[in-house]
């Protein structure tokens, strides 16, 4: 097939000049993005790649996509193949925690070495501006009176959005299995449902709503942050008397069986990467909040998050 080949080679030439190249000062790394190209985890992995390469923290960095089942397929493959290799990383997030529990995945996060939380976002509860509901208190009253009458539009079943809705119901004494949670497959679809008043409220990472909030089409009722977030004009759930705190985070982990030296080395690489200007700029342009937390502190936090997710998913009826 001469034609496509010739054109592809032309493409290759243009792309080759665009690709960042640098002398191999440090080790060559491989980052697994357990999702298809284009999604959040893939973008995280490729942003890390860019930061590490252009700031010469690593020699060449290769990103490999292993999509499937909320990241559990990539995780299982990584845990098996990368064992003990301090030059391989995997990206993941809170959604993976939910997926592991719900799918009863044979390989869990226990099988890898958590390294650092990179970014995070708090969940926001929103309504369309023309909705009669003005405060989170009204939602809670409605929920207590008739749980089914409050429909929550958000991401996939058992994901962070669902966990947040379940936690809120539980915190105000409503049976989490009665929560009328309506999963949507993409951000756009659930946003449209909230904007059109199809669901009573919308629940997702704040970033999903940011543009609509700024343009005055959505009203934020509450966020699931421990304290108010600058730039978001809304109370926390805690302020409103509901003891719920959820962060939808993304992290990076290493393979199992790392030597202490290997772990220290890769942690330092990530630490250096997180401090680079390229990475900080990426966070800014992508609108990602920096919730960097590394090493043992992150491991402890992760354990807590997993336990919390497990409990609430069991309460909702999605896990054993």
């Amino acid at each position: 097939m001469p034609v496509p080949l010739r054109r592809l080679l032309a493409a290759a030439a243009i792309l080759a000049t665009a690709a960042a190249g640098g002398p191999a000062l440090a080790a060559n790394l491989k980052i697994i993005a357990p999702a298809s190209p284009g999604g959040g985890w893939d973008q995280t992995a490729r942003s890390m790649q860019q930061a590490m390469q252009s700031e010469k923290i690593a020699g060449s960095v290769q990103v490999e996509n292993v999509p499937g089942a909320g990241g559990t397929i990539g995780l299982a493959q990584f845990a098996n193949r990368a064992k003990g290799d301090p030059h391989q990383l995997i990206v993941g997030g809170y959604v993976m925690v939910g997926a592991i529990i719900m799918n009863d995945a044979p390989v869990t996060l226990d099988a890898v070495t958590p390294l650092a939380r990179l970014t995070g976002e708090y969940e926001a509860i929103v309504v369309a501006t023309d909705s009669p509901i003005k405060t989170i208190g009204e939602v809670i009253d409605k929920l207590k009176a008739n749980p089914g009458s409050v429909s929550w539009g958000g991401g996939s079943a058992g994901g962070t959005d669902h966990i947040a809705a379940g936690l809120i119901a539980k915190a105000v004494g409503v049976d989490p299995t009665k929560v009328n949670y309506i999963p949507f497959s993409g951000g756009g679809e659930s946003l449209a449902a909230v904007l059109g008043g199809q669901t009573t409220v919308g629940v997702s990472s704040y970033g999903e709503f940011d543009a609509q909030v700024k343009s005055g089409k959505l009203r934020v009722l509450a966020i699931t942050a421990p304290e108010r977030v600058p730039g978001i004009d809304a109370p926390t759930m805690k302020e409103s008397g509901v003891d719920v705190e959820v962060q939808n985070w993304r992290m990076v982990a290493g393979p199992p069986g790392l030597t202490p030296e290997g772990k220290a080395e890769i942690l330092k690489t990530i630490d250096d990467m997180a401090k680079t200007k390229t990475w900080r700029d990426t966070l800014k342009t992508k609108g990602w909040t920096d919730t960097y937390l590394a090493g043992d502190a992150f491991t402890a936090q992760l354990k807590e998050d997993i336990a919390k997710a497990h409990t609430i998913l069991r309460d909702i009826g999605l896990a054993e």
Partner: peptide
């Protein structure tokens, strides 16, 4: 092999 080189080098696929 030619396709491999294009895919992995130019498009960064694995």
């Amino acid at each position: 092999f030619v396709l491999y080189v294009i895919f992995t080098k130019a498009l960064a696929l694995t």
